[in-house]
């Protein structure tokens, strides 16, 4: 009786979280406003932690919430806030509708190809081994990570520091372009008439955007 209630609860929880996660993932990809989309991604990442709890991995669930919800989604929200408002309503369009259809067909092909993996082979339906309790699980994971594979953690440290210092180096290059602008394009262009004319002649000022939008509109019309 107790086992039946447990199994029922497990099924209900799985279906509930799966539905929420899929809806939130679709919203994160399709919502028109980028800020909302990133928020939906953050909520999706914290619901994915529910699967890790279902799969007896409490530490992974905690790390998912700490790093994905607390770190990565905040980083992406911050990145969106650093952009001018013009860019966060999405203007993404394909050159032709045919290419977009090709993308959709290819991704459905990916889903079908991987879904056939699920249904062609026979996968285990029961958890074979054990009921791992919280303390044992953390202990074993710590033994795996720090005891047996401690060198991986040092590699992770190197990778993270590489990304940190690499991003600082990129920002430093950007400052150098500010200080010594190549032909004035990266300087304070508002005061410099030459550069704004030059930029208009080229393809990189505010004026280009309406032109391209007009092109898009033409293509959609035809």
């Amino acid at each position: 009786m107790l086992m039946q209630i447990e199994a029922l609860l497990e099924h209900i929880e799985f279906l509930l979280i799966a539905g929420i996660v899929l809806v939130l993932a679709i919203l994160a990809l399709e919502h028109k406003d980028l800020v909302y989309a990133v928020f939906f991604f953050g909520i999706m990442a914290s619901f994915v932690a529910g699967f890790f709890l279902l799969l007896e991995a409490p530490f992974v669930a905690g790390m998912q919430i700490a790093v994905y919800t607390g770190g990565i989604s905040v980083l992406i929200i911050f990145g969106v806030l650093l952009l001018p408002i013009f860019h966060d309503t999405t203007r993404e369009r394909f050159e032709t509708i045919r290419k977009k259809r090709l993308g959709i067909v290819l991704s459905i092909f990916v889903i079908i190809l991987s879904g056939s993996l699920v249904f062609l082979f026979t996968w285990p339906t029961e958890i074979p081994a054990v009921n791992v309790d919280l303390a044992q699980s953390l202990e074993g994971l710590a033994q795996w990570l720090w005891g047996n594979h401690g060198i991986y953690v040092q590699f992770i440290a190197i990778i993270i520091l590489t990304s940190l210092i690499g991003s600082l180096a990129i920002l430093k290059l950007e400052k150098a372009e500010h200080l010594n602008p190549e032909s004035g394009v990266y300087g304070l262009a508002t005061w410099d008439d030459d550069t704004s004319e030059k930029a208009k002649a080229g393809n990189k000022s505010e004026d280009t955007v309406p032109v391209i939008m007009a092109q898009d509109a033409e293509e959609e019309g035809t």
């Binding site: 530490f59 905690g62 790390m63 700490a66 790093v67 607390g70 770190g71 990565i72 905040v74 980083l75 911050f78 990145g79 650093l82 953390l138 202990e139 994971l141 710590a142 033994q143 990570l145 720090w146 005891g147 953690v153 992770i156 440290a157 993270i160 520091l161 990304s163 940190l164 991003s167 600082l168 920002l171």
Partner: peptide
């Protein structure tokens, strides 16, 4: 954005140290 990247680095380090500190290791 640099400050949020710094936070991310400390966040990941804290997660690893958490795993270390709860075990008998």
């Amino acid at each position: 954005i640099v400050y949020s990247i710094l936070f991310l680095v400390v966040d990941v380090m804290g997660a690893f140290l958490w795993l270390f500190s709860v075990s008998a290791l």
